[in-house]
Amino acid sequence: MTRYIVRRVLGGVATLTALSVLVFVALIAIPGTIVGSTLGAEGASDSEIAKQLEATYGLDRNVFVQYFDWLWGVIRGDLGESWRSGRPVSDVILERLPLTIEITIGAIFVAIIIGVPLGAIAAKRQHTFVDHGARIAALLGAAIPVYLTATLVLLVGSENWGWVPPTGYVAIWSDPIENLATVITPILILGFSSAASILRMTRGAMTDVLSQDFVRTAEAKGLRPMRITIRHGLHNASIPVLTVLGVEAGVLLGGTVLTESVLSLPGVGRLVVDAITQRDYPVVQGTVLMIAGMFIAINILTDLLYGLLDPRIRLEGDN
């Protein structure tokens, strides 16, 4: 087990390193630099000031030097400083991260609460009204863009009740009610959109499981249908559902970019978009690395959960 975890974590670090190169190259390729956007078209033609600024940001150095300098910082836990605000990137991210994590976890929770029971019911009552209804609802949830839902929620709320969702972030431990008021809208919007794929996967996996012999045996033994569905059905269907959950976590982390932008919430998602438009590269690099790292960690965790849910699964490298 330990060996497996160590191997996966090392693999994750290797992936992150490769990814950091990719991010670095992508950022260098973005047309226009911070020097241009700070000085404007006129100032940029004054090469003396431009050179000075380039030196301040370290842009006059060799690209490889720039990269390894940054990487060395990351290894020591230093993500550099924001070119815009001058604040340490890690501070900026840590300040914004709780909101995004809260929204993502909340949305996954909502998606499970909606998707798993409905998927199980749809599988038990296949080709009935319930089944079709659940599937259509699920398809709609997946097909409506999240930024559209968010926009419509804003429209309906403000037109009818003069309601405007709160835009500030209050930590959950300092004022739980205020906090909930902020996160509930994005959580419900994203949760509904992710429920779709979880419902589909639960329905598919449950259909497979319920047609197997051991379920017929359980029925023959006279077990209550509820018990069969949960103990025999859902337990065995949980592995594929878990896989989708891991994938959905990534989709949600991306989805927060959109909902945070539409609802003007100060989360990590909006931070990336703003930093890209402002050419604040240290912030972009740090944030992308952080989000990707979280995504990789989630995927390792789901793989570990497989082993817990199904003792037959032996993790590779685990003796």
Binding site: A26, L27, V251, V257, A292, F295
Partner: peptide
């Protein structure tokens, strides 16, 4: 390892 939308945003921004 990238959340899909994040990768798309980064690439689209860097390509212009």
């Amino acid at each position: 390892a990238f959340p899909p939308l994040l990768l798309a945003i980064m690439l689209a921004a860097s390509l212009g």
